[in-house]
């Protein structure tokens, strides 16, 4: 058996240990300080939260005694179906258009620097606008109803799937692109045969994930008048009918949970 100290007899001196990164320490300290300062400025206190919740409160009482009958009422059911339809349509339109849009942001998919810059800027602006803001904008301009919700979800899906797909495109193997070009392929043919097969499983997974997001978002969109189950929740909230409201919310939880489980299972098979 060889002992290392017979092969390397002199105790080696290690190179100087690098100093702990000051930047990391400063960032952590700043994050803690910022949390404390903001908590103070909004008068955050645990006591108040517990105090408010334990006082006699019709909202919390409704939670303990939800109206299950509301789930099966005809109106609630059609509102649920509208929510699902919104999520499906918003995903189908937005996520489909996201694929070419993501390809246009890459150097290999779009040789024109100016068009690339324009498409990237559009994506950045689109991503900066939250779904609720889109919904409020369309409710104001198009009117209350499902169409506003659909438009909001379309732009929201476009933003999410484009971003995720672009990030995947950054990491693809460039070899097949060179091979397609060397065989005399035009740009669309090259993208279809050398790029799309590489990202297709990831893209399909993003579309499903986007559908989950849309289903959840479509509930909230109704609160500003953009159709779906949210409109119905808002209706009961306005009437102060908390039992019916909680019944609907529980039903919504179940729907979201089931869809999410299905989607997660499917996505695991894809990647």
């Amino acid at each position: 058996m060889t002992h290392l100290d017979t092969v390397v007899p002199d105790a080696p001196t290690l190179p100087r240990k690098p100093r702990p990164a000051l930047f990391t320490i400063a960032t952590i300290a700043a994050a803690i300080a910022l949390t404390i300062v903001t908590a103070r400025s909004v008068d955050f206190s645990f006591g108040e939260i517990i105090g408010n919740l334990s006082r006699k409160n019709s909202v919390v009482e409704g939670l303990l005694n939800p109206d299950w009958g509301q789930i099966w009422s005809r109106r609630s059911r059609s509102a649920f179906i509208e929510t699902l339809q919104l999520a499906v349509l918003g995903t189908a339109t937005g996520a489909t258009l996201a694929l070419p849009l993501a390809l246009w942001t890459t150097t290999f998919g779009n040789p024109n620097r100016w068009i690339r810059t324009v498409v990237r800027s559009f994506n950045n602006v689109n991503r900066a606008i939250p779904d609720l803001l889109w919904a409020s904008l369309f409710v104001a301009s198009v009117g209350i109803g499902a169409l506003s919700g659909l438009l909001a979800l379309f732009f929201f899906s476009l933003a999410v799937t484009t971003k995720l797909t672009s990030d995947t495109l950054d990491g693809i193997d460039m070899g097949p692109i060179e091979a397609a070009n060397a065989a005399g392929a035009s740009l669309p043919k090259m993208l279809r045969t050398a790029v799309v097969p590489q990202i297709l499983p990831a893209y399909a997974s993003f579309v499903l994930y986007n559908f989950e997001l849309n289903l959840r978002a479509s509930a909230v969109l109704g609160l500003v008048g953009a159709g779906g189950i949210g409109l119905r929740i808002e209706f009961f909230r306005g009437r102060g009918d908390w039992e019916a409201l909680w019944g609907l919310v529980f039903m919504f939880f179940i729907v979201v949970f089931v869809v999410e489980r299905l989607s997660v299972t499917l996505r695991r098979r894809l990647v």
């Binding site: 091979a179 050398a194 590489q198």
Partner: peptide, 25 residues
């Protein structure tokens, strides 16, 4: 025709689809 050191095949797709890339033009 061009042949590469790293083969430059699309790993996620079939051999036939890769060869058909030669017919793209």
């Amino acid at each position: 025709g061009m042949i590469f050191q790293g083969f430059n095949l699309v790993d996620r797709t079939t051999v036939l689809k890769n060869v058909l890339m030669g017919r793209l033009h």
